[in-house]
Amino acid sequence: MDITYSPVTELNLLKDLQDRIGYENFADGFGLTKYGDISGLVAGWSGDPEFTDLLIPFAQATGGGSFYALWKLDDRADLATLPVVVFGDEGGQHVVARDLRELFQLLGFDTEITVDWERAYYYRDEDEPHSDGHDEYAAWLDQHFGLPVAVDPDVVLAAAQAELGQRFTDWVRPFLP
């Protein structure tokens, strides 16, 4: 396992998979990026340390430049249990998963997330082919975490939004341009 990528075991396992089967090759538009690189936050949102110190960017969410980050809403030691937020390349920021494992299930839906100011969502046509590494990713998710891929991503997103959406919106508001 690549322990040099991050201090998060789950992300290191995913990095190993990505190194084997390729960037954007198991979940459409997704790829792990430099862990903790805040340049996108600073460029598009805020360079305020009160903002950047509580977010850990770790992955591209879309080919257009949206990205995922962990939100350090408290001082928990297990970073994999932190909520996952998305920042859209054309604006908008939302909680998408209550933890990394939920995000991993969403990635298994195998389509880019759509992010706008009002919401974030996943949509794929029934006849849209899966990424080349999708089956290997689904097997990886089951093997390492005993989880299935999300069949209905709206359920996962709704649960995350219900629990943490307003709290994130209230927290991020003072930092928005």
Score class of each variant (00 low, 15 high):
48 D>P: 00
140 W>H: 04
79 L>K: 06
60 Q>H: 12
173 R>I: 00
16 D>I: 13
103 L>K: 09
136 E>G: 11
65 G>I: 08
31 G>S: 12
131 S>T: 14
112 E>H: 05
76 R>G: 12
33 T>Q: 08
33 T>L: 07
88 G>L: 01
92 G>Q: 01
128 E>H: 15
76 R>S: 15
33 T>M: 09
9 T>K: 15
37 D>F: 04
52 T>I: 14
27 A>S: 15
117 W>F: 13
98 R>M: 03
10 E>S: 12
177 P>E: 06
39 S>E: 11
63 G>D: 01
46 S>G: 00
86 V>E: 05
119 R>C: 09
26 F>R: 02
141 L>R: 06
170 D>C: 04
86 V>G: 03
34 K>M: 10
131 S>N: 09
82 L>G: 00
163 E>R: 12
39 S>V: 02
43 A>P: 00
153 P>T: 07
92 G>H: 05
176 L>F: 08
102 E>L: 06
29 G>H: 11
99 D>R: 14
126 E>F: 13
1 M>E: 08
73 L>D: 15
102 E>F: 10
92 G>W: 06
66 S>P: 12
169 T>A: 15
75 D>I: 10
172 V>M: 08
114 T>V: 11
102 E>H: 12
148 P>Q: 13
13 L>F: 11
54 L>M: 14
107 L>K: 11
2 D>V: 08
22 G>V: 00
40 G>V: 00
18 Q>F: 15
59 A>T: 05
2 D>Y: 13
43 A>I: 00
93 Q>P: 00
54 L>D: 10
44 G>I: 00
11 L>W: 01
151 V>M: 14
51 F>G: 09
64 G>R: 12
83 P>N: 10
175 F>L: 08
